[in-house]
Design a binder for these strands. Structure first.
Length: 938
RNA sequence: GCGGAUGUGGUGAAAUUGGUAGACACGCUAGACUUAGGAUCUAGUGCCGAGAGGUGUGCGGGUUCGAGUCCCUCCAUCCGCACCA
């Protein structure tokens, strides 16, 4: 029947395990036969395995990237073998800063850079043998994709959060209510406090109406504090600011209030918190999200300003300590500061405000040691005692958190205590029998005193009592506060999604759905304009595909816009009518397994939960949590090598001699270093500026490098690419070695030392099938009892370990199995065939090759059936009991299985070896755990 | 300062519910073979000790017949951060 089977032809040429030939063949086979193409199939149970898609950087993949992809690929293949219809897609998060930076430097359009990088990524990924369905690839920077990102933005813009319904609702319902009855009875998430009637509303012009609606929309324009770098003309992230200067270029950075798009994620704070109970994520990630959302219960209290008709509102978690208040501190940016500052202190306040505007938020918070602040000259009235309380400003209070104002209780809060000590302010003690002169007291069990109606109570009771009293006297109310802030959604960048927004009369207006996508216009340069407008402001009118109104929105969306919903697009990537059709979403549902780094704990993972909940509210999704199960793969760290340059010279000193000199450490490329020894000539070639450098070496003439484990990065010259390892050992070896390194969730330093062990294993696996001459040695004989036991033990361990994502022990199990089968000289098809299936998720190329050599019909084994474990092969007749005396293991005694505890005890005490250890003593107690252990207490 | 995680041989690690600590690999030592290789095979390898044996999972306590595993105190390292009022 076989007319031409390339497999068979190849058999004659392969004697050794020739991974290159095998991997090339099967890689091509899979691609040509669309082996991993997947379609919706209502007859099959679905399983959705997702990787966090990469940003295609110019540096290509390093060995850390594929770690998670390999794990998810193994799991996908495993689930396929179990009969699931597996969705396992891949794509690119292809908007981002590096391509834009490159464009600024070279003028090359970021789309070109991105295309080149994606091709390189694809090439590298293909070599590793992943079972991705590439027909579903998505790219966030493709207009076909970001059309729908813009569409979701529009939906957010057109929605507000109804507190009574506890969900997002169309803004049309809100305007309808405004027209009927004004906003008096509206319960929506907003900071807007003004009241208006239906008549008022109708009298407003469109611009006024819109500026009110902005306070309700889930995507809205508002003034936000940002790190503004005038020289770069852009806003910077906190970690792009170092000591008040931009990381790039070292330009000054200041805090500036800017009109920005924001996302009202705060509306979802409580649901984001509660949803954590319904998903299978690690406790540490959930804890990080909880801390980020930062729910705290307390009270907001109004302090009346003396000499002004106004109040300062503070939020406190400890309203019970209100009688200990001796001053109030405002954030320097607090809007009332200018108004209340007396002329006497105005100059100092201005100086202080200027100084804190130059500090980044992070610097302000990290610097605990330096206490700073300034008195404003103004006072508020204590709401209970009516005493005047001085108002200070201090940059330990943040404008963005709570109300930007705190009531300071130096006896109960250490920071307030430090502030009081530093400025010699009063510390009033309200705690019974506690000395607060040197230290604040935060013990909640201490009784309160000097506090009127709170005297004698402990914190928990006093908090309730204080809130009651505060509400009774109408000076405030009990309140839940969240640390979570609304997310700023504007970026002054080119390489991101344009907003589907234009402006008329300074009012934002939406483009129609039919006009989407609004694509990126071409620009002459990728830099901000001279007057600080974003790069898109450079585009000519005619270069926009749609241009409306007085001007377009010139900001672009942040990186997390596209990544907040990409997992939905994989379900239906080519749909032009909707972001994904409802029947496909219904079929694929939630992501069953999501694998990615924990660095996204509070960014991407929170934003995509937010968007999912929103789309659920608006009826577009049947679920409101995107990722059912999450695994965070640990980071693979690089091992960097260092050489030591003697200061102000071109002389380098070897590691062991460096203590005698003043040196600076220099990263050196790890490819120039072998076993910590530097190849000096290669180094000189690598860094021509040091071609005349001299080296102080060790007595044996070698130059020893120092080393350190740190993040893998191009700038640290410690990057190991998968390509060279695949070249040397093959993809199957690389896959298994990455898994063998350790538990997937743990971070670990990269070290290729052990890779030979894994490669050897695959060769031994090959040797079970093929002899030295290249002939098959597989037979049809019934396997021995031992061999069957080995097989079924392995099936059981593999199943258990895969189900708990313990990929490293899976590799060990396979090694043990091959060691045993080699010792048993087993070549039976009835053992080797199921074993090949067990191996196939890990080493798919080799497995396919062996599978076809076993005479299976031509085609891929990816839908073979995972072998079933049968406990009958594992039954033992006897067990070697470890016998302990007083908990110390001394000897083993073999006994038949199935004895009762009493029988075991009797036999043990009769045993002569056991008696030797008993030294004629009478045991106080004998513990018998059948099938486990015997412990004799003397 | 706060929050989270982790501490087991020379190295990566294993031990799923408290029950034989160190599986599996790397490395190292000795030997065999040889077409001299980054090959293969055999034996050994936690530490101390010639041995019997002792000892051993960051330190110190505790619970238990029995603790790497549970509880308390402390120490170290890594990661994150927002002085969160």
């Amino acid at each position: 029947m076989v007319i031409f089977d390339p497999n068979l032809i190849r058999c004659y040429f392969i004697m050794e395990y020739n991974f290159k030939e095998i991997e090339d063949y099967w890689r091509t086979f899979w691609a040509e036969n669309n082996t991993y193409l997947v379609k919706e199939d209502s007859k099959k149970e679905k399983f959705y395995v997702l990787d966090m898609f990469p940003y295609p950087s110019g540096a290509g993949l390093h060995v850390g990237h594929p770690l998670g992809y390999i794990a998810s690929d193994i799991f996908s293949r495993y689930k396929r073998l179990l009969g699931f219809n597996v969705l396992h897609p891949m794509g690119y998060d292809s908007f981002g800063l590096p391509a834009e930076q490159y464009a600024i430097q070279t003028g090359q359009h970021p789309a070109i850079t991105t295309e080149v990088n994606i091709n390189r990524y694809r090439e590298q990924l293909d070599k590793i043998g992943f079972s991705f369905d590439w027909s579903r690839e998505v790219r966030t920077s493709s207009p076909d994709y970001y059309k729908w990102t813009q569409w979701i933005f529009k939906e957010l813009y057109k929605s507000y959060y109804d507190i009574r319904k506890d969900k997002a609702v169309s803004i049309d319902e809100l305007t309808f209510i405004f027209e009927q009855e004004g906003n008096a009875h509206v319960q929506a998430v907003t900071d807007y406090t003004d009241k208006f009637t239906a008549e008022d509303w109708k009298s407003f012009d469109d611009k006024d109406k819109e500026s009110i609606l902005q306070n309700y929309r889930l995507a809205y324009l508002a003034d936000s504090w940002v790190n503004w770098c005038p020289a770069l003309g852009t806003v910077l992230a906190n970690d792009e600011v170092v000591n008040g200067l931009s990381e790039r270029g070292g330009h000054p950075v200041e805090q500036k209030l800017m009109r920005q798009w924001s996302m009202r994620i705060k509306a979802y704070a409580e649901r984001l918190l509660n949803g954590l109970h319904t998903i299978d994520w690690s406790d540490s990630i959930k804890e990080q999200q909880r801390n980020w959302i930062g729910k705290s219960a307390g009270a907001s209290v109004s302090f009346k300003l003396i000499d002004f008709d106004n109040t300062i509102e503070v939020f406190t978690t400890r309203p019970d300590t209100i009688f200990g208040v001796t001053f109030v501190v405002l954030a320097p940016e607090h809007p009332l500061v200018d108004q209340i500052t007396t002329s006497e202190f105005r100059e100092n306040v201005e100086v202080y405000k200027k100084a804190s505007s130059l500090k980044s938020e992070r610097d302000r918070q990290a610097d605990v040691k330096n206490i700073s602040g300034q008195f404003t000259g103004a006072y508020v009235e204590h709401p209970f005692t009516k005493e005047p309380v001085p108002i200070w400003i201090g940059d330990y209070v943040l404008a963005g958190y709570g109300t930007g104002a705190v009531m300071a209780v130096p006896c109960g809060d250490q920071r307030d205590h430090d502030f009081a000590k530093h400025f010699d302010l009063e510390i009033r003690n309200i705690f019974e029998n506690v000395d607060v002169n040197e230290q604040a007291c935060s013990d909640k069990e201490v009784r309160i005193t000097n506090s009127d109606f709170l005297n004698g109570l402990i914190a928990t009771d006093a908090i309730t009592r204080a809130i009651n009293e505060i509400e009774l006297r109408e000076i405030g109310k009990g309140k839940t506060n969240y640390r979570l802030r609304d997310a700023v959604f504007s970026r002054q960048r080119y390489w991101g999604e344009p907003f589907p927004i234009y402006y008329e009369n300074d009012t934002p207006l939406l483009f129609d759905d039919s006009e989407l996508p609004i694509t990126l216009p071409k620009v002459d340069k990728y830099l901000p304009t001279a007057d600080g407008e974003p790069p898109l402001a450079r585009a000519k009118k005619e270069d926009w595909d749609h241009y409306k109104g007085e001007h377009m929105e010139y900001n672009t969306m942040p990186g997390w816009a596209g990544s907040s919903w990409y997992f939905l697009r994989y379900m239906d990537p080519l749909n032009t009518e909707t972001f994904a059709s409802r029947d496909k979403i219904d079929y694929w549902g939630q992501v069953d397994l999501y694998i990615g780094g924990s660095e996204h704990a509070t960014g991407h993972l929170l934003y995509s939960r937010f968007w999912t909940k929103f789309l659920f509210d608006r009826g577009y999704l049947p679920f409101d949590e995107p990722f059912k199960k999450l695994i965070n793969q640990g980071m693979i760290l690089g091992r960097s090598s260092f050489i030591y340059r003697i200061k102000n010279t071109t002389q380098f000193v070897s590691y062991n001699q460096k203590k005698d000199y003043e040196t600076t450490a220099l990263h050196v490329d790890i490819s120039l270093v072998d076993n910590d020894k530097l190849d000096i000539e290669a180094f000189k070639k690598w860094r021509p500026e040091f071609s005349n450098a001299t080296f102080i070496v060790e007595p044996d003439g070698t130059y020893l490098c120092g080393h350190e484990v740190e993040k893998m990065s191009k700038s640290k010259y410690n990057v190991q690419t998968p390509d060279e390892l695949i070249e040397k050992f093959g993809a199957d070896t690389l896959r298994m070695y990455e898994m063998f390194l350790g538990p997937i969730e743990q971070s670990k330093p990269w070290d290729t030392k052990g890779i030979n062990g894994v490669h050897n294993f695959l060769r031994r696996f090959w040797r079970l099938f093929v002899d030295q001459s290249g002939a098959s040695i597989v037979n049809d004989e019934q396997p021995s009892k031992m061999a069957l036991k080995t097989l079924h033990k392995t099936i059981k361990k593999m199943t258990d370990d895969l189900d708990r994502y313990s990929f490293n022990t899976c590799v060990s199990n396979l090694m043990i199995c091959v060691n045993e089968l080699t010792d048993e000289n087993c070549h039976s098809k009835f053992v080797l065939e199921p074993l090949t299936i067990l191996l196939s998720p890990f080493a798919p190329h080799l497995s396919e090759e062996l599978w076809s050599r076993l005479g299976n019909p031509k085609g891929s084994m990816s839908h073979a059936v995972f072998p079933k474990f049968d406990s009958k092969y594992l039954e033992e007749e006897s067990f070697a009991y470890p016998v302990s005396f007083n908990g110390k293991m001394r000897l083993k005694v073999e006994l038949p299985m199935g004895l009762t505890a009493t029988e075991i005890e009797k036999k043990m005490l009769e045993n002569s070896d056991v008696q030797k250890w008993m030294e004629n003593k009478i045991p106080k107690k004998v513990i018998v755990v059948p099938g486990k252990i015997v412990n004799i207490v003397l």
